[in-house]
Design a protein around this nucleic acid. Sequence first.
DNA 1: GTTGAAAATAAACATGG
DNA 2: CCATGTTTATTTTCAAC
Lengths: 162, 162
Amino acid sequence: MRDSSEGGRLDSFDLAILDILQKDNGTPQRVIGEKVNLSSAAVHRRIRRMQEEGVIVGNYAVVDPLRVGLPFTVVVEVHVESERLDLLDAAKRSFAGDPQVQQCYYVTGEADFVLIVTVPSMSAYEALTRRLFFGNNNVKKFRTLVVMDRIKTGLAVTLDDA
Amino acid sequence: MRDSSEGGRLDSFDLAILDILQKDNGTPQRVIGEKVNLSSAAVHRRIRRMQEEGVIVGNYAVVDPLRVGLPFTVVVEVHVESERLDLLDAAKRSFAGDPQVQQCYYVTGEADFVLIVTVPSMSAYEALTRRLFFGNNNVKKFRTLVVMDRIKTGLAVTLDDA
DNA sequence: GTTGAAAATAAACATGG
DNA sequence: CCATGTTTATTTTCAAC
C-alpha cells in the first residue's frame, strides 16, 4: 500500500470535471466534455479513475429534510470527561452510528465533538440526548444550538489549482 | 403557489427509493426497482416527481477535501453584536458567499452562527477570519474549533415512515 | 407495467505526444 | 508508454402505450 495521497496529482481537467460534478453529478459526460474540451471517453476515464483513487468519495442525492418530516436541525457541542483513546473511540462509534446524527466532528478547542443532528421534533432530540449523552458516562456536558436557518448546507469544496 | 409542503405525501416506495439514492444516486433505476419491487418506469416517474417537487434538492458528487489540497476543516461559532435584520442578512450573505464556507447555520442559543469551513492551511483560515469576522463590525467574537477527525460527514437523512 | 426509441455509459481499438 | 479521440457495443433513461 502506498501513502495516503495515493494516485497522481489532479490536473486542471480533473478539477474542472469535479467542479461540474459537485454541482450536478447527473451531467452527461458528453456535456462535461464540451465544457472542458475533452472527449466524453476521456471524461469517463478520468471520473472512473478519481472514483477508484478516492478523490470522489461518493455520489449522493440530497433530500430536503423539511419534506421528509425532519424539520429540526440542531448543532451540538459535546464535552467529554476523559480523552482516553478507547473512550473516545466508543463515543465516536456511538455518535456516528446514530441515524439522526448527520455529521460528527472530533475537534480541538473548547469542545471535543461537534454534531449536526436532524430530528422530527424537539422531543426526539431530547430522546437523542438521553441515548447519546446521558447514557454515556464519558460525556461531561453538551451545548445545544437549535438551527433557525440553514443558510448553506453543501459539502462542495473550492477547487483552485494547486 | 401552494404552501411550502407542496406535493403529495411520500409513501414507503418513495422513502425506499430516496434511501437508495442518498447512498448512491448512480444506482440504475432497474436495480432500484428490483430492490423496492417496482418497475423501472415507476421508479423513474417517482424520482422525476420528487425532483420537481423539491424533495430531492440536488445530485452531487462529494470530493475528499484532503485529496484536493484542503486538509483543514474548522467549525466556527460566531457571535454578533446586533440582531437587526438587515445586519443579520448582510452577515448571512457574506458567510454564504465565501467559497471556503461549506456550511452556515443561523442558530439560537449561545451563538448566532455556526460555520463549517474548509481551508488549505491555517493561514488561509486566518485570512478568512480577517475577511469575514474582523472585517465585519457586527461580529462581536468567534470561537474556533479545529477538526481533528471527520467522523461522519454526509447530508443523508433518516427516512422512517411518518 | 410493458415495450421501444433515444441517449448515455463503457469497452475496444488506433494514434499522437 | 500514457492519455487522447474515434468507433462500437452495452446499458440506461425516458416517453408512448
